[in-house]
Amino acid sequence: MKKLIEVDHVSNERVSNVHFSLMEGSLTTIIGPSGAGKSSLLLLLNRLEDPDKGEIHFKGKKISDFPISELRRNIGMVFQQAHLFDGTVEENLKFGPSLRKKWEQNDGVKLLEKVQLSEEFLTKEVENLSGGEQQRVAFARTLANNPEVLLLDEVTSALDMRTVELMEELLHKLVKEEGKTILMITHDLKQAKRLGSYTLFMNEGKVEEQGETASLFQHPKTAALKHFFEG
């Protein structure tokens, strides 16, 4: 596996000296207490914010050297809340591709299939969807741009068990079959164990500890992580 993203000693108001890499086709989880800077870190990777210090590289090139819209399409993000736009599910799904006039009639059905929603959802108004359905549509909306990297901010936190299972299944498929690289924030430690091959533990804006998920969970080194596991 080769390095796809490298976060090189990055700092801003909310994160401090963060350093890690994301390997191509891997699923990395971020765990840590609220206010640890996890969401802020994702915003930096999508360039919704910029660091004050340090650099982020994507495919060996500084992310600031990419045209910003192209970068954001390639490093897609799904937020904790769905933030769907007013209108139908289809209008939401085609938002990204339509900006480049790359939307085809059949694309909506294919995207809904991925998130296990039926074709009938295309014409539904988003306000009539349940929370879980909205989150799946938001996920499909990001997938519509066919990003190489997916940044997921606690996307399963408000979902029921069945939908969580569906989403986890989808994440596995995206990594194994489509070679996507995923960086996912989760509050659910069991989920982090189930999904991640690599895990970052963030605390007070810093990545306090990182490593292979199994080893990190079995042998936490820092007192902060031990304390976090103890709840």
Binding site: R73, F79, H83, F95
Partner: peptide, 13 residues
Amino acid sequence: KGKILAALSLGAN
């Protein structure tokens, strides 16, 4: 704010 961030993250200017 959330919707605007979502739109930007999808490549909108």
